[in-house]
Design a protein around this nucleic acid. Sequence first.
DNA 1: GCCGTTTTCGGCCCGACTGTTTTCAGTCG
Length: 570
Amino acid sequence: MLNKKTVVRTLEKIALYLELKGENPFKVSAFRKAANALELDERSLDEIDDYTKIKGIGKGTGAVIEELIRTGESQQLKELEQQVPKGLIPLLKIPGLGGKKLAKLYHELGVDSAESLREACESKKIRSLPGFGPKTEEKILKELERFGEKKERLPIWYLESVVQEIETLLSSIQEIERFSVAGSFRRVNETSKDLDFVIATKHPEIVKEQLLNRLAVKEIAGSGETKVSVVLDLDELVSVDFRLVSNNEYITALHHFTGSKEHNVRMRQLAKEQGKKISEYGVEQADGQVMTFQSEEDFFAHFGLPYIPPAVRETGQELDRLDELDRLVAIEDIKADLHMHTTFSDGAHSVQEMGEALIGRGYQFGAITDHSQSLKVANGLTPERLKKQRAEIEAFNESHPGFTLFAGTEMDILPDGSLDYDDDVLKELDFVIASIHTSFSQPQEKIMERLFNAITNPHVHMIAHPTGRIISQREGYHPDVEQLIYWAKEYGKILELNASPYRLDLCVEHLKLAMELGVPIAINTDAHAIEQLDYMAIGTMYAQKAWLKKELVVNTWSVEQFKEFIRKNK
DNA sequence: GCCGTTTTCGGCCCGACTGTTTTCAGTCG
């Protein structure tokens, strides 16, 4: 059976070629919409009997799908591939060049690759075409040079520090009334193409000047009355857009620039049905009056909607799942953090300091889970040191009534599949996390054998960062996650959503499966220092992307519920 | 190309910015 992804990609490819032909943009987007609609449909290819019943797929696109399933190829795509050279596709990525301009360049000058585009610029042929000029030539040449130099997407853990730096700067500019990061970073995407900030100010010129002077600006990509786009020269080149609006317009602008595009489209369609019109400057009523809002809650309420958190504003389908929103896990529900390190192993703060930091965050319980003995680089704990730590934890609990610190471990699952502590050590601990830190490149069978040994051990409560991935940097040890989730279900264990922006492991797709099966999930920061306890916010918002319900999230349980769970697993 | 009980034709989200133009098309998000 043909892969659904292949069908989706084929439809997208047709859209791309149509775009390059300079076709009607609505036709182009119809193919994209059809691809999207098919992808979002939860059924597999052979479970769908009539494709044209899916909204967004009609006679034309439905026929392409049918043909693909029947013959494995699309006649329409084949014809397009003959009409439009392949080399044009990567050129669509050049800023300023879209389908129409590229179509013109191809037909008039025979441009069909990066190389021939460069030649056309250098021989100054482009400026003679209507709609093109010398500046376009220069810009294309510059973009061609930089082709490949700038990273396509940057990971959330890198952008996080950039955002903090920019926020510090924005806080120091007096003319700014309020500001927020927006865009895909605010929606907690794993990677983003650029950063967006929305700024409320009465003095856009001054703010603009301050930004351009005080940031490490490598290039000003655009600068208008309400928008400044720059490329920052940091460890990586980072594109940042600043939108400057009045305080009144701030909320609608924030909503607009938080997106996603698909979410905004759905919102605008809904507004239209209500006789209203949404723009970044406000909501125009039927009588022409423009309304603005004090908060995003008010904005959504204006359309009769509950607050939709940024993390789920993704496909537009969130507007069909409004009744699930109040069951979504949120940071206010979090009562505990169950994975953290102290100075006993590789953490920066003591048991006492971590415990007090948890109390300071309003939590009701937590677990200290330092590394185990074989992880020498992290100063893992021997059973003797584990006992010493337990004494500290008990002393802490005595002096802090109303809060419970559990004595735990993040125990290594060793390369041979054995566990780093004997059962008689484990049974003395309140909370046992097992995880893999070594021998990532073993074959999947071996990795699964290790995980199976851990998950079937009666003293183990949770598997931490189940895949070992680092976003955009390392793929982890490639476990069969689906199998692992089924095991967790069968043996009644917790799986972790590691909240560190480096990890976010399990990922959204796997969290969805875990939720379907009712496997409990713990959102944990894996903090190695007090500040990292703040990762809980990122982890919780990331969990929302999988529509994780609060009752499945261990950290929302009461301490009694949690005690009951760990007692059962002894 | 897709869609629709106000429409089977005429819309399709909306606006900023740029570089080309003397009022606007193309691109972008």
